[in-house]
Amino acid sequence: MKPASFAYIRPETQDEALSALAEHGDDALVLAGGLSLGAMLNMRLAFAETIIDINRIPALNRIERVDESLRTGAMVRQADALKSADVSEAAPLLRLGLQNVGHYQTRSRGTLGGSVAHADPSAEIPLCLATLDGVVELASQRGSRRVPAREFADTALSTIREPDEMVEALHWPIHTGAGVAFQEIAQRHGDFAIVAVAAVIRNETEFSLGFGGVEGVPRVLDGMVGGSVEETVGAFVDELDAMDDPRASAEYRIGVARHLGVQTLRQAQELAT
């Protein structure tokens, strides 16, 4: 299980990275923590003429408050985010989601940006970002742009990132004091979720309820608190086009999404009041 040959570029600044992407982007893959890409390269499920390793660009490691958001650089490690006081205060939903990401060992090197860019349908980090209606900041030599997280992944393992772009940062709308809840079900501890559900309550009146692992990309229900949680969640979940694979049938995903959706939303509501 050895990767096919690739050329290797290790930029030390973001400008160097963008220049490499401009030159090689069409045939290049960006290597962050490598926890997903490494496996795919080794199994020869992913190929690239050039690997652009962004592990040595210090600017990508920052966590900072920008306007109404917490901005996390693409290379912020999951373990560091989990320990960050800023994340705890300003993005508590991310903290909950991170507790379910992979394992202690993989979080040590795995990154926030890498997870979002990889766009696994079951991944917790893009689910939290979509639920919060956060933003993905993309950079290229052409300039930078901000894409709503809910539009970033178009299908499973695919995003609208252009070949010369890289994920530079994620913007997490600050939801201090809001009720947040996160639940998932997986066969084993640390597995990618079969179904993951994230909930956030804003201003005690609005909620967002995100579902991961059901469709190819996270799906989010926005609504107003009040009314029957079962009916609201049930109506939304019934419309989902669930995946069917050896890990779980579509019926199971729908059934559990409904159950976890109701539980998670209720839990968030209780915490919000």
């Binding site: 496996a39 066969q187 084993r188 501890h189 640390g190 597995d191 050896p246 890990r247």
Partner: peptide, 15 residues
């Protein structure tokens, strides 16, 4: 369909 340790699930210490 079970060609990796992600697909063939063996129990961990937490399971």
């Amino acid at each position: 369909l079970s060609g990796s340790f992600a697909d063939y699930a063996c129990p961990t210490a937490a399971d």
